[in-house]
């Protein structure tokens, strides 16, 4: 009997101590693991766009980022993948605002092509060839006449996989490339000026909310199809007077010819004279629903902040 009790006790102890120790180790290492992952990602982003004055904004988790410099979008970085010879090849590629490749880097993690042959896709000379190429030129010379890339000797399959991964990624993501480089700030200054005219405004929240007589102006942002969209709203007696949507040539980082229909069809005019609760009833621009909704949401969230700011 005594032996039984002892056995149960020992088992019980082992069963308690082991998970306890492990949960401790897990809790200690988890933040470190996550931090290293983030650092690695940041490092690889910086490697393909080495400039210290920029910041990255995630558009699609783990696949697409926008590069911002002085608040204007100067390019994108994407990650794509393609089956190589014996593993999956995952390049990270940076593209400038003209849609030309700046730099690419092939992730070594999980890459196991034939050593000495396919593995050479990670070599500098091979990756360097891509610089400055546009989508049509992203072919192997031996595959297409317009191609500008040399394959690695005896590793055509791996080379071709890299080239198609880059090309297909560019094809998929080029719609996210900003078409202009002028800044958000400029747009904002002009829009504010056209709203204000000569009237004097007092600042309620710096850079966000202004008041002139019974008129309020607020700035807000909404998440569009591929980026943040800025709106500047002028409001009087809870009725919208005028809405300014950030234009493409003013740093409007939205899909050209797609989201920008919001601008072409003068979506901003539809808000005139509406009360905030009527906004949901306004028709979206067909073919640009996400952008339209982003504008609506930006107006609504900005309105909430405005109410809070006004009552302060």
């Amino acid at each position: 009997m005594k032996k039984r009790v002892r056995q149960v006790l020992v088992l019980f102890l082992v069963g308690i101590i082991s998970p306890f120790l492990l949960s401790f180790v897990y809790r200690e290492t988890k933040p470190v693991i996550e931090r290293t992952k983030k650092e690695q990602l940041n490092k690889s982003l910086q490697e393909v766009f080495p400039d210290s004055l920029i910041r990255f904004e995630t558009v699609k988790n783990d696949t697409l980022w926008r590069i911002y410099k002085n608040d204007s979008c100067v390019g994108i970085i994407y990650r794509s993948s393609k089956k190589g010879y014996t593993s999956v090849i995952r390049p990270i590629v940076s593209v400038d605002s003209r849609g030309k490749i700046i730099r690419l880097k092939i992730q070594k993690e999980g890459l196991s092509e034939t050593p000495g042959l396919g593995m050479n896709v990670t070599e500098d000379w091979f990756q360097e060839q891509f610089r400055g190429l546009s989508e049509d030129e992203l072919w192997l010379k031996k595959d297409r006449e317009e191609g500008k890339l040399d394959a690695i000797t005896s590793a055509t399959i791996s080379s071709r996989a890299v080239v198609s991964a880059v090309r297909e990624g560019l094809k998929n993501f080029k719609k996210y490339i900003p078409s202009s480089s002028s800044t958000h700030n400029e747009w904002f200054r002009n829009a504010l000026e056209s709203l204000l005219g000569n009237s004097r405004m007092e600042v309620i929240i710096q850079g966000k909310l202004w008041k002139g007589g019974d008129r309020y102006i607020y700035l807000s942002q909404g998440e569009g199809f591929a980026s943040m969209i800025g709106v500047l709203v002028s409001i009087r007696n809870d009725t919208i007077q005028e809405v300014h949507i950030q234009f493409p040539e003013e740093g409007f980082c939205e899909t050209p010819g797609y989201g920008s229909r919001v601008i072409d069809e003068e979506f901003d005019k539809r808000f005139k004279g509406k009360a905030i609760q009527d906004i949901d009833g306004i028709d979206a621009i067909s073919g640009a629903t996400i952008t339209s909704n982003a504008v609506k949401n930006a107006i609504k969230t900005g309105y909430k902040e405005f109410i809070q700011g006004r009552n302060r």
Binding site: L21, Y26, T29, I33, T36, Q40
Partner: peptide
């Protein structure tokens, strides 16, 4: 313990 330590410090 080893597994998680390696994951954290020598990824």
């Amino acid at each position: 313990v080893v597994d998680y330590t390696l994951k954290a410090y020598v990824p």
